[in-house]
Design a protein around this nucleic acid. Structure first.
Length: 305
DNA sequence: GGCGTTGCAC
């Protein structure tokens, strides 16, 4: 492109930069070199570069680039703000978020649904649910992502009642919304409500199953977690690493419970359950387990596996 | 002209 001179063509150059930032095999620093050598740039080129920084764990560089963009009088467009607001969300910086939000208002992009959705998400991530709600309430057009984003805000706050209210008001619900509610019910110890919602869903995905299994995990119903996994597996659903971790967690805890019960049973048989260090009883005299008994215990426990 | 937003584990 340099030889033919096509590098001077802004559109052609923008395609080159986009190719570079989209490739997992090209370092973001190399993309920046391309970016820096382009003679004429436009909004698209700046947006692509900021997005590359944000996606590759350099949100601060994305924000700095945005400030440089404003300094250089390159006009931000409606595509710029989802990228910048997203970068701010990653850094969980509410103050910087407010500043960017004021730019959005000044530029008049607050009516764009993509911009609004990222703002809801940004405030929710920063734990500023009332500001998230304010953005939501003032948006001229809401879509499914807007509803899911504000719902996620209440889920993060652990506000079951507000989340339920939102969920019920949604004009259309998708699998993401239901999954969020299952997660919230799980965290709040409302296992039967989680299960009921799961059963009522028309469409479930891997996240739905993972959310339910981890709900059982978190509420220490490990047998049910494994039973759910078995049911899922029987249906031929492909698993991923997140699900496997939830299942392993259930297995490990079940093992702890079983081992605990096994040790207790052995302790009863050997007749040392009244010892304070085992039963925790205040009345029992404090004593150590004799060495040979402890060894016998572990031999028995290991046989159980 | 081409670009942007939401959910699961430890």
């Amino acid at each position: 492109m340099i030889l033919t001179g096509y590098i001077k063509d802004t559109f052609a150059a923008s395609r080159l930069l986009k190719f570079s930032t989209d490739s997992n095999f090209i370092h973001v620093d190399y993309s920046y070199k391309i970016f820096n050598h382009l003679e004429r740039s436009n909004g698209f080129i700046w947006n692509a570069m900021m997005r590359a920084y944000s996606q590759r764990n350099h949100p601060q560089k994305a924000i700095l680039l945005y400030k440089l963009m404003v300094e250089k009088n390159v006009c931000p467009d409606k595509y710029t703000y989802p990228v910048v607001v997203q970068a701010v969300s990653t850094r969980v910086d509410a103050l910087e978020g407010k500043e960017i939000h004021s730019h959005v208002l000044k530029m008049g992009f607050d009516s764009d649904v993509y911009v609004g959705n990222t703002l809801i998400n940004m405030y929710a991530v920063c734990g500023d649910i009332s500001d998230a709600r304010k953005v939501f309430d003032e948006m001229p057009v809401l879509d499914l992502v807007s509803w899911n984003s504000i719902l996620a805000g209440y889920v993060q706050m652990g506000d079951v009642e507000k989340a339920k209210l939102m969920f019920d008001q949604m004009p259309r619900k998708n699998v993401i919304a239901s999954n969020s509610m299952i997660v919230l019910f799980g965290r709040s110890g409302r296992v039967s409500e989680a299960r009921q919602l799961f059963d009522e869903m028309d469409e479930r995905d891997l996240v739905s199953w993972t959310a339910l299994i981890s709900c059982y995990d978190q509420n220490e119903i490990y047998e049910e977690a494994l039973a759910t996994f078995t049911e899922m597996y029987a249906r031929g659903i492909t698993v991923d690493e997140v699900l496997i971790i939830s299942v392993l967690s259930a297995c490990a805890n079940l093992l702890v419970v079983k081992t605990g019960a096994l040790i207790h049973g052995l302790a009863l048989r050997i007749g040392i359950d009244s010892y304070r260090c085992i039963s925790g009883s205040r009345d029992a005299p404090k004593s150590d387990i004799p060495k040979n008994v402890a060894t016998d215990l572990w031999t028995e426990v290991l046989k159980g596996f």
